[in-house]
Nucleic acid binder design. Structure first.
Lengths: 147, 147
DNA sequence: GTTACAGTTGACGTTAACGTCAATAATGCG
DNA sequence: CGCATTATTGACGTTAACGTCAACTGTAAC
């Protein structure tokens, strides 16, 4: 059998490499590890090294954070994204959790669109007000009060 | 004279009313006030009461929070949403700020769609894995932990 | 009235998510 | 090899965003 397509020595990243790539501190990365969010391997001298998967995970963590998820919530998400798949029950639980998250995300999408509209309408009001000021805003400006 | 459609005494809300409506504590609401995010009126006995506008603002704050904005950022947004419009320069500055926020929001929309995709693909993998387990679960049979 | 409940202002406590610093060990390179 | 980087583990500090308690005061119902 023609075994696997060659090992191809997967790319490794040092902690500072990832830190600068994602513009976070090394402390932050270690902190995520403390919290069980990442689990890099160690080299002979006990130094961490990260592979593609670790890197992808870090990306996911940061993305989650940008949406206001706490590390704890992200941990759950990730537990789902990874699970050292041992038995079907675990997987099913993870799937259920994933559904919840999907629903959440979709709701967030809707809300984000609302937020966009909010800001657009504020903008419209401001533009109108500005036009008003620039034109006949002379006396009316001093006596501002009505609508 | 057919005067105006009657004043219609605008609806007022107490702090605890809003708190329970939005499922936050009264402390939180007062905290937002300390930070300058809301400015309710006071009744004779120095008690806060909130009107529709205050309520809408609170909603906006909470919405912003759900997207990971800090209170400080929200304060800026709101400054934009409100400004006691005094001069055109202020308005222009606010408009510029609004543009920035809009750009941010749109990027977030894109990212959120990405996150959705991420989770969908994880889900697909899990489903596949599950199907695999349920069928060829021969070796896995030995490892079965029961449920 | 009075009585219970809601609200007010401090002031201090707490938690998440890191920052900072120190002492020590591992790696890379000329 | 020596030496400059870069890492590692504690341990303590910090900030945002509230929670919690205490000691009042206002308000609403009876």
């Amino acid at each position: 059998m023609p075994s696997k397509p060659a090992p191809a020595r997967e790319r490794r990243y040092s902690i500072s490499e990832l830190a600068s790539e994602f513009e976070i501190s090394t402390r932050t990365i270690r902190f995520y590890e403390e919290k069980g969010l990442i689990s890099p391997r160690r080299s002979g001298g006990n130094q961490r090294y990260y592979d593609k998967r670790d890197r992808a995970r870090l990306k996911l963590i940061l993305r989650g954070k940008r949406f206001g998820y706490s590390l704890e919530e992200i941990a759950e998400m990730i537990g789902m994204a990874d699970v050292d798949l041992d038995e079907a029950g675990q997987i099913r639980r993870s799937l259920a959790y994933g559904e919840t998250k999907l629903a959440e995300i979709r709701q967030r999408l809707d809300e984000l669109r609302l937020l966009e509209q909010d800001i657009l309408s504020v903008k419209a009001r401001l533009v109108a007000r500005l036009g008003h000021l620039e034109r006949g805003g002379l006396a009316a400006d001093r006596d501002r009060k009505g609508k």
